[in-house]
Amino acid sequence: MATFNPYLNFLGNTEEAFNFYKSVFGGEFTFLQRFKDTPHGGQMSPEDQEKIMHVALPLGRNTTLMGTDALEAFGHTLTFGNNFSIAFTPDNLEDAHRFFNGISEGGVVQMPLEKMFWGAWFGQCTDKFGLQWMVNLEIKE
């Protein structure tokens, strides 16, 4: 079954925020990756290398709170209103393409839907109403 999850962006304090959410909601992180552990990590400042590239905290059986540090070094700007996205996890690649093509129509594509280094198909866009969406489908091998 496809799922929709909130994806939060922070200005360098994702780790602090998610440790707070973990203390409130309980549970354990199912994923935590720092920028230093990405293919481009060596090209970043030591400070940015320690920032959070992706973190996931389950909030229930079908919902996961996810987040990242929005790095200015990558050209990200963050203001209230663009500090979150709705993350869509489809059931299959056909649904991923159908959803991404539909939701991005008339909007702006920041990252086209394509295979990524973390083992998933991923795409990111802002729809014609200004809402941010992410599609992420793990590749099953």
Rank of each mutant, 00 (worst) to 15 (best):
M1L: 14
T3E: 13
N5T: 01
L8S: 05
G12D: 02
G12F: 07
E15V: 00
E15P: 09
A17M: 08
N19E: 15
N19W: 11
Y21L: 07
V24P: 01
E28N: 12
F29V: 03
T30R: 02
F31L: 11
Q33N: 12
K36Q: 08
K36R: 10
T38A: 10
T38I: 00
T38V: 01
P39K: 06
G41P: 13
G42C: 07
P46A: 00
E47I: 02
E47P: 03
D48R: 01
D48L: 02
K51E: 04
H54K: 01
H54S: 04
V55H: 08
V55S: 06
A56I: 04
A56W: 06
L57I: 11
P58G: 04
L59H: 06
L59W: 06
R61K: 15
T63C: 12
T64K: 01
M66P: 06
G67L: 03
A70S: 14
A70L: 04
L71W: 10
L71R: 11
E72R: 09
E72F: 10
E72Q: 12
A73R: 11
G75D: 03
H76W: 06
H76I: 00
H76Y: 11
L78C: 02
T79P: 11
T79V: 14
F80E: 14
N82C: 02
F84E: 05
I86M: 11
P90F: 02
P90M: 06
P90C: 05
A96W: 00
H97N: 08
R98D: 10
S104D: 07
S104N: 04
S104W: 02
G107Y: 11
Q110M: 08
Q110Y: 13
P112E: 08
P112A: 02
P112H: 03
L113V: 01
L113P: 00
L113T: 00
L113A: 01
E114F: 00
E114D: 10
K115V: 10
G119L: 03
W121R: 09
F122T: 05
Q124H: 13
Q124C: 13
Q124N: 15
T126R: 15
K128N: 15
F129H: 13
F129E: 06
F129G: 05
F129D: 09
W133C: 06
M134G: 05
